[in-house]
Amino acid sequence: MMSIVEFLFNPWVRGTLGLALIGLIFFSAVITVWLERKFGADIQSRIGPNRVGGRFGLLQLIADAIKLFTKEDLIPAKADKLLFVMAPIVILGSAFMMIVAIPFGAIVIGDKSYPIAATEFDISVLYLEAVSALSVLGIFMAAYGSNNKYSMLAAFRNIARMIGYEVPLGISIIGIAVMVQSLNIVEIAMAQSPLWFIFVQPIGFAVFFISILADMGRLPFDQNEAEEELVAGWGTEYTGMRWGLGLFAEYIHMILGSCLMVLLYLGGWNLPKFITGIFILGAFAPIFWFIAKVVVVVMTIIMIRWALPRFRIDQVVDLGWKVLFPLSILNLIWAVALGLFFGA
């Protein structure tokens, strides 16, 4: 038994696993894009891709990727070349830096559970929030570098929006940290063993959900790439592969945001003991349980995208400061009160 644990903790093995994770994340982003197209088509009473790769258009995204990667790579003459080239990398990088701290389920052996995370450190939630906000920097680089007014407007909007949602997001996370008395995401996930935090802090969940939607830039908060106003937002000047990378980064961001939501509020990978007690199930069931929840959250986010119109940017900032911020404070008071009541 112990040998497996030692094997898993070997840094080389963990490094390899991490690389595999990046591949898996890319793959899941492809699946999400496909899901979005099929699911969106379904909602809009269309059929969606069905010619490439069988009835369900499974290979559609492969075709899109091949096309994007073999397209001509244009850099506008008046662009700032360094920023222009680096921007998609920064956007993608900020998404990948999130992977480091997120546990994707756990392997439960006996009473102990070993989370599948690249690293485990004490302030991982804080780290996640900070890193996730880095993508704004990338978007601003893209906009400034491409020397396009539409992109610039998009970047301004993005920053205005970030200031609006980042504060309530942080405070709602503090609400959880107060309750668990830790900023370690693994401990937060484990603390929800019988009772999910969505039931303990419903207001906090609502605030977090709306803020994380804004963080991902999904509709109704996709002001930064509102096609009807700003052409393609920050990506207006980007072609082929570079634009594709940015697109993938957004979908990866969306998946990781969903993971975060599951870990913080929806009970993580925790399963009752009589299931995890069985050896084989203990190794796989928590992971599947976790992934199933993530898929449900992703589907919900996709559905929201096709069901709502878009906010105007000043309305988003209004929402952030006038509604979400007081609500998150209220939630914090509630969390502290609960903590005092049960802790004392």
Partner: peptide
């Protein structure tokens, strides 16, 4: 969209 043909707004 069945054929993978979708509209894009930006010429890029």
């Amino acid at each position: 969209d069945r054929f993978g043909i979708i509209p894009r707004v930006s010429p890029r």
